[in-house]
Design a protein around this nucleic acid. Sequence first.
DNA 1: TCCGGGCGTTAAGAATCCGTCAGGAACCGG
DNA 2: CCGGTTCCTGACGGATTCTTAACGCCCGGA
Lengths: 224, 224
Amino acid sequence: MNDVLVVDDDPHLLKALKITLHAHGYTVVTAPDGESALRSAARHPFGVIVLDLGLPDMDGTTVITRLRQWSSVPVLVLSARHGSNDKVTALDAGADDYVTKPFGLDELLARLRAIQRRTIQADEAPVITTPSFTVDLAMRRVTRNGQDVRLTPTEWGILELLVRNPEKLITQQQLLTEIWGSAYTKEANYLRVYMAQLRRKLEQEPGNPRHLLTEAGIGYRFQP
Amino acid sequence: MNDVLVVDDDPHLLKALKITLHAHGYTVVTAPDGESALRSAARHPFGVIVLDLGLPDMDGTTVITRLRQWSSVPVLVLSARHGSNDKVTALDAGADDYVTKPFGLDELLARLRAIQRRTIQADEAPVITTPSFTVDLAMRRVTRNGQDVRLTPTEWGILELLVRNPEKLITQQQLLTEIWGSAYTKEANYLRVYMAQLRRKLEQEPGNPRHLLTEAGIGYRFQP
DNA sequence: TCCGGGCGTTAAGAATCCGTCAGGAACCGG
DNA sequence: CCGGTTCCTGACGGATTCTTAACGCCCGGA
């Protein structure tokens, strides 16, 4: 469970990450390119995969797509450029989160811990609880301060998708295609309207949300 | 009881599942297609069957249908696409639960545990009481203020399905397919008529129901 | 400093859904 | 054959939900 696969073509970075992660209790396996990464992931079940998007043999998004055909091991993406949209495509392909290079090791470790929390929680949680509301996925019911909260079907769909993936960054496209269908990927307007409604119904302070967070330009994230 | 049959045509997934499940105490047998799965299930009594819907030789739903002709072993379905309805048909055919690919191994394990819990406690206390009426599932009898209430077969079917899942939201489709059959999923009209009749017979205040609740756009819920 | 894109918020019309009623068809037992 | 019960169907107002547009805010880039 504490096994990490780090995929990068830079030997220096690999070495540094191996040392740091090992010092924090992780067992580290490294891979220099996409093919060997996929082979390694098939042979051994990792708790998380750290994947650089700039690989010599294949696009990082391709690695995620091929990996996602049979595994759902969490993937943390290392994105090179700041303003580029490759991290969005990587998230659409199934990545869980991203860190922009150059990154601080503290940030990377924090993201790794977050991902591990999330996978542990996903273990058995038909009921998700936050300080301000509770979601029962099996009963399809939301309560706040002991009171039932009425959600419309669309509101529930969005909330369920976010809550089923705690701390995972869900892109706007993922939300739109999942709730409205793939023909509505341009209607980011809908998301703003419904996220506002959800926050008004669930957040203590809708203008300053603590659990339904916005990742500007990318998507939304549920924080337990 | 801890024997699991995993049916999938992807050797990678089979291998990964075999390793993981074995590590969690299950005895795993694998099958690559529907025919061998049915043969294997006939030869050995499994505690649960994990079945991928996308098989090379036959439709996954067909496997369930043929299996259900002689066995009631729990079936956990692996569904490929997110938005498709094959999981609905699989559940209609007799599957117990489903997991959408790609799935987390934690989620799969949780579902397996849930299924085992459910099969163990199959027999239940068949009398449900509310402040305004009482339902005896074994006797097939409903009383209100000590008086028997006459229910038509259709009314009983709806009430039974709701009462057997207290506090759980039952979708319109579930009700329609359960009572009228899967060809009637568009006739939400029926539900409105019969829910009104049930409320008139059972609720203290039919216009303001306290136990047979409507969830607009989704379905109905029984509140004890 | 100005500009523009992305976001949150609000409101109003359109579309959908629900409860209700009633008439007629189908079914069943006597 | 007949009376009674159950079921199906359509229609109606009222309520809920969805869609769409518009406006102001904030922040980063020019």
